[in-house]
Every structure is written in structure tokens, then in C-alpha cells.
Amino acid sequence: MPKQRIAPILWLLFSAGGIVAALMIPVLLALFGVLFPLELVAPPDHAHLLAVIRHPLTRLVLFGTCVLALFHWAHRFKYTLYDGLQLKGLHTAINTFAYGGALLGSAVAAYLLLLLPA
């Protein structure tokens, strides 16, 4: 039986992503996805939001949220296809898509949150 070297690391990323997603996403999605569009709460003006996003701490927190949430997705999505749809035979394609997607998304997040505002 081969000892797994990478599985524990991916599981740690999944877990960290699970916590971050549970803490951060509901409030942000409720505000920007539901409450502002339904005009139940007035959206903040552009100048305020730009100032918030330009703050180094916000950028770091949002970048961390994006990366960890993406690795959380990759892990769960992989096992959903493995077990839920019994597609374990396609593990190479599934892993490439899931972790490739997470890396690509992380790169976009790094560009938008770390490079662009600086």
C-alpha cells in the first residue's frame, strides 16, 4: 500500500477552505448576490468599495479566501464525481480539471488582488 504524501496536504487545504468558505461566503454572497440586487439594502458607493479593496489587509484576506475556497471546491468536487457518480475510472481527467481549475483561479485571483491594485 503506497503511503500518501500529497493527500494529507490537499486535505489540509480542503479543510482550511471549508472553514474560510463557511465564515466568509454567506455574508458576502447575501449582500452582493441577493440583498443589493433586490434593493433590500443600498449598495455601498464606488469610492468606498474601492478604498476597501485597495487596503492591503482586504486584498490579502480576499486572496486567501479565493485560493482556499478553490482548493476546497477541487477536493469535494473530485470526490462527488468519484463516489456520487462512480467516475473514479476518470481520475486523471477529474484531478486535472479540479486542481488545474483551482490553480488557474488562484492565478487570476493573484493578478486581480495582489498585482493590479498595487
Partner: peptide, 23 residues
């Protein structure tokens, strides 16, 4: 519960679109 991860990924896309728009 496992499928919720797809919507977690969607949120990241949504958030990055928001950030790009604000910037």
C-alpha cells in the same frame, strides 16, 4: 453538502468579477 462546493467555486468567480469591476 458535497455539491455545495460547486457554488463555493461560483462565488470565487463572482467575487473576482466584482473586484475587477470595482478596480
Amino acid at each position: 453538502r458535497e455539491v455545495s462546493s460547486v457554488f463555493v467555486a461560483w462565488f470565487v468567480v463572482f467575487l473576482l468579477l466584482l473586484v475587477r469591476a470595482v478596480l
